[in-house]
């Protein structure tokens, strides 16, 4: 499998990455280089093999239903590039 320019544009859109037009063709080459190289995984028969979900062999730990966090609105805003009255501000979103 390999990607073309349209595919690269589509996945860049999906990943919300601005990609200058002159970077599209080189990216096609780079991605295909990687994809052709990972193609060797097809050699392996994986029939009946379960995908690995985690290397950790224990029960999922759970927290108690207790409020232990929050009330940090000031700290949340410290790094906010757009922040006002404890809201994060973004360009108008049209639904």
């Amino acid at each position: 499998m390999s990607v073309d320019k349209d595919t690269v544009r589509r996945i860049a859109k999906l990943a919300r990455l601005a990609l200058e037009e002159e970077r599209v063709e080189p990216m096609v080459q780079e991605l295909n280089g990687i994809l052709n190289w990972v193609e060797q995984l097809k050699e392996v028969n994986v029939d009946g093999v379960a995908p690995l979900t985690s290397v950790v062999e224990q029960r999922l730990k759970m927290r108690d239903d207790v409020v232990t966090d929050g009330n940090v609105a000031d700290a949340l805003m410290v790094n906010a590039p757009g922040g006002e009255d404890h809201f994060f501000i973004v360009p108008k979103v049209v639904e």
Binding site: R16, A18, N79, A80, P81, V90, P91
Partner: peptide, 22 residues
């Protein structure tokens, strides 16, 4: 949106994402 680099003069939210990340 909440931290990190934000592109200037984004036209809309998608533009903001794409440029900031780009």
């Amino acid at each position: 949106v909440r931290y990190g680099h934000r592109a200037k003069d984004a036209r809309d939210i998608t533009d903001l994402y794409e440029k900031s990340r780009g």
